[in-house]
Design a protein around this nucleic acid. Sequence first.
DNA 1: TAAACCGTTGTTTTT
DNA 2: CAACGGTTTA
Length: 734
Amino acid sequence: MPRKSRPEKITAGLTDAQREAVCYGEGPLLVVAGAGSGKTRVITHRIAYLLEQGVLADGVIAVTFTNKAADEMRRRVEALVGEEVHVSTFHSFCARLLRREIFRLGRDPSFTIYDRADSVRVIRRIVKDLELDTSTFAPGTIMAYIGVRKDRVEGAEECRKTALGVVDRTFAEVYGRYEEKLTESNALDFDDLLLKTLELFSLCPEVLQQRQERYLHVLVDEYQDTNLPQHLIARALQGKHRNITAVGDPDQMIYSWRGARMENLMEFEEDFPGTHVVTLERNYRSSGNILRTASACIRNNVFRRPKELRTERDDGAAIVVARFADSYAEGQWVAEQAGELVEDGLSLTDIAVFYRTKLQSAPVEEAFGLLALPHQVVDSVGFYDRREVKDLRAYLQLLVNPRDNESLLRIINTPRRGIGNRTVAKLQAAAEARRQSLLEAVRDAQQLEGLSSRAQGALAGFLKLYRELSELDAGKVAALVKQVLKRTQYVERHPPDQQADVQEVVDVFLGIVRQYDRRHPEGGLMGFLEQAALVSDVDGWNAQASAVPFMTLHSAKGLEFDAVFIVGLEEGVLPHRRALEDNVYGSEDPALEEERRLFYVGMTRARHRLFITHARKRTVRGREEEALPSRFLDELPEEGVERLPGEEPAGAGGSAGGFAREMEYVLKRKRVSLRILEGAGDRLAKGVRVSHPHYGEGEIIESSSLGTRHVIRVNFIEHGTVTLLLPAEDVGPA
DNA sequence: TAAACCGTTGTTTTT
DNA sequence: CAACGGTTTA
């Protein structure tokens, strides 16, 4: 096949280090790429280069972190060499593979993908069935437990065998039941997509072998954020040809709560003997001031391989740090500054606003609204979580997978059609007894005793509706959604004052569906549902739309903008309070270091201008609370950073030091009672053993008094070292 | 069965 | 301040 040969186009403009990575030949390759060092460029150009070298497009698999990044990479490769390569996320790659092959594991290919909320609902029902105490066995806690286990590739059986104690054994028990429920419903959760793929590879070597033959090259972006199952999948795929390219930056690892393992990157050379390593330390994105500031901050991380990024760019404008009375004043200032940047010639899409949590978007949105500055909150996941969208998806899902009990439970009485809790409970009992799905139980409901004729009628009506819907031609998803809406009177059956809101959500959903129909004429209903299940927030961001994007720091990874605003640099927000809970001292704390990396990711997104803001007061759950400046602000250098009036420079007056701040934080959060187990003399002296309602037992390793209060460091048996600050009256004898 | 009410609870980040 | 679960009442 004749190919337009353009090697000069592919390697032109690359630096030596970039070219070394792009043109590397056979064998494992690790590209440690600092922020802004052209990492995406290296991957796309490497793929293009490989194709130029004669590798068939079909023999390349590239994995990115989001679908949007995948689309972008595919587009860029196509622009370079005119060929379409396979780029996807781990999850969608696995989903597609499993649709083809999961029958080998005795499962049906029309499986439903459950999101976290679906999973929690399943667990909630199990916890109820088992009559467990819902505070010890909170569904969310159990879900987190299962998630951690799955990230470690540990099955329910394994957990049951290794469980220590009653609580742990119960967790494992629920895990086992959860797996059963999902199997009954023919559903997979996010983690299962990865785990079932691994299971398939080990139980059906012929499938793995076929994939290994096919993939001459495997390329994985953002390797620092891969978890163990993903690492194993990448490893499996490259098994025959041993051509794996991993690209990543340990300083940007921000998903440890989802099982991401920095070790996958750090120990890459041991896992793949003979690895060639290319390090990219030159930054082509950010001004000198921005890069120096970000570097100064990240340098405070202890668990880190030192790396010094250098930029060729000018120092540029100073970074602006500003403090405001509250988050509304903060938002207003951000909007005003953004407006000025636009007047100076920046376009709206060159500007971005980042925050730690989605809750923070509201005040900034409001301010942008007041100034009539177009903006868009990047939050597709939030949209798909809307009740209306989940309802409609459940209707569609049940058509694809009639065994999906979770979807059936969601819609059997939505809108209300007279099928109440008691009727549903009877259906569940019948389904369990006859080993049927709930829909089958509905079908056979006339044989059920103890159902009122009213309930019978309602069930018959639902069954009729289901049958009518399933007979419709599923060619266009939008047409199907419209039929669901029409036949259920979905919008009309809401209270009149809600109908406008519901209609709006429905219309946006219909827009998404139509767009899917247009782009994937052959995709079908199952394809749509799969895509909907695997969206990330940024996937829904329209980068073309002329509006300032607002997004979380997590979503910002991999993007860049001329001007960046990071809001809410406050203790408890960034770093987030959850990260401060276990360890408040020093920087040996992994959770705190991840928060710092998050800040680092945010700062390094900026090309020319960086604005960092915080507020004195923040409204948390309806209550206004004092907010302290983030400790990360103290870590910024003085040079190249302009602190606006009202904003004190680091350490000014000697009162804003780290210790005092930590104290105040602890004072607020950690005032709890402590029991002394043994030890005489000074009640809170070193060596005294204590018991804490949350942390359990431990031994005091450091103690001092602060006025009427005590500051102690305790080494807890199960939780490690924790610093506590407590008033004397909060301490009681054993 | 469904609406209305009340109390509890939690509360980051997202494939 | 939500959202959710459970209870009571029509």
